[in-house]
Design a protein around this nucleic acid. Structure first.
Lengths: 264, 264
DNA sequence: CGAGGTGGGACGTGGGACGTCCTTCGGTCG
DNA sequence: CGACCGAAGGACGTCCCACGTCCCACCTCG
């Protein structure tokens, strides 16, 4: 059975303690040791390649893969694109997961953040604002900010998960032709707010700032005619506090502020 | 190229708006329409099968899959098992992600939880306590509790993600021979605590209760000789409040309470 | 001594054949 | 007349063989 060969190869990697990057036996050797034909071996390897458990290099060999979250990205992207109806709902689900994750993560990070960390984040935000003044987008800086933020957790899974969701969101947006990004100045402002709250060790403030950051992303994915339904999941009792604002955009009322985010 | 054929099949599903369960063209038809050999088609389908984008039924046909998170489970399980060193560290990472997720999710749920929801949760916890008195474990009830809890969010991705992490944890624990579960009474107590906090709309209390629930799971995965390093990531200023306790176990001091969880 | 050619190893693709599983349809038996 | 059973066909599973492509390493030649 095909599934069984897959498990055999995985077990072989585990038994031999092969680290990522180590060479696997050749297809011919696997044929022999597993007692199956080359086609069966190849189908199993192709399946493992799709899971990033194995890496196949043409003309060179087969190697143990990184076991990254690439299959999650592929699967979620496909699933989101396959839902022709409830299009933005599927994306909103992904954004909600990202928001929950980052809100909880910043909760863990905000208390004991290092001065060195703050300096690195300051550098990133500074470059963001520089790019924003030039009117340029800065997706790489955005990712770098969030990655740096959670580096101190020592949890390798966290940045990979966040990157996976980020990747899915942008791939779907691109496939759907949603090329309009929010104004760079607004995005830079949101990150400045987060950094300011972190500097003051203001945990709930940092959570609010992070939440508003995602609120802005969410608003972008809604067609204008559905803006009335608005973003989901009010944050709860935190609403009573006036949100901080770095001042690069005009002050806003108690509304969600979508009118400032480029939504027509 | 193999990757291209995979993309072609995915694009075919998207273009024809095929819903999950719909039949795909036969391998022969795909050979013809894509202009490649059957081997190549089969390898692509095998890869898509591993991603749960396609479902192959022997002697029957190929169908559009559910695009579930099965590949994530497989990948994370493999990756965790492949790290022979830092074994428990990898598991702790997964648990931390689960904890962050559920802590943030219960934050969103606790405020506006329905009476009907509370009644359903009460029923589940009641069955838990019944099973605990009989000394039996209740993994299904555990899953049902957490699934029910987040049902009102209307986010289909959330329970799937949680189930995926749950699945990875238990598969790894089983493969590692960590069969010792915490005392059922303790687990039932933890869920009772969560429910009590929810009933009082005590959001931070619910978060603390959820956190303690995970703390208990975490302690179980640590070998006794490493218990000194203890669970990571103190929850922050929430520590000052005395944790609630349903009273089925003895009160505990400011420590992490591992001594009550079956750790030798 | 070095640059380029050449050979071998390993994966990529194609074609064909046969086995296995499932469904369907028609015939037979009760 | 109806239910059961076997044959036929479709579709996937496995296998074998051959050739193409890519990469590396050795060897030869200038």
């Amino acid at each position: 059975m095909g599934t069984q060969i897959r498990r055999d190869v995985m077990q072989l990697i585990l038994d031999r303690r092969l680290p990522p990057g180590a060479p696997l036996p050749t297809e011919a050797e696997l044929m022999e040791s597993l007692g199956v034909s080359r086609n069966s071996v190849r189908e199993a390897l192709k399946a493992l390649q799709a899971l990033d458990i194995v890496e196949i290099r043409h003309g060179y060999g087969t190697y143990v893969g990184q076991a990254s979250l690439t299959p999650l990205v592929d699967g979620l992207t496909f699933r989101t694109l396959a839902r022709v109806t409830d299009d933005h709902a599927a994306l909103t689900e992904i954004l909600q997961v990202r928001e929950v994750l980052e809100e909880g993560l910043i909760h863990r990070v905000a208390g004991g953040i290092d001065d060195a960390e703050l300096a690195r984040l300051e550098s990133i935000v500074g470059r963001m604002e520089e790019a924003a003044r030039a009117g340029e987008a800065f997706p790489d800086l955005d990712r770098e900010f969030h990655e740096t933020l959670y580096e101190t957790l020592g949890n390798a899974l966290v940045p990979q998960l966040l990157a996976a969701f980020w990747h899915v969101f942008h791939r779907v947006a691109k496939a759907r032709g949603w090329t309009r990004d929010p104004a760079p100045a607004v995005t830079a402002c949101r990150h400045r707010d987060i950094l300011t709250a972190l500097r003051e060790h203001d945990v709930p403030g940092a959570q609010r700032a992070m939440s508003r950051h995602f609120r802005g992303i969410d608003a972008r994915s809604f067609p204008a005619d559905q803006a009335a339904s608005g973003p989901p999941a009010p944050i709860g009792q935190a609403e009573r506090a006036r949100p901080r604002d770095c001042g690069m955009i005009r002050r806003e009322g108690p509304g969600s502020g979508q009118e400032a985010l480029g939504v027509k």
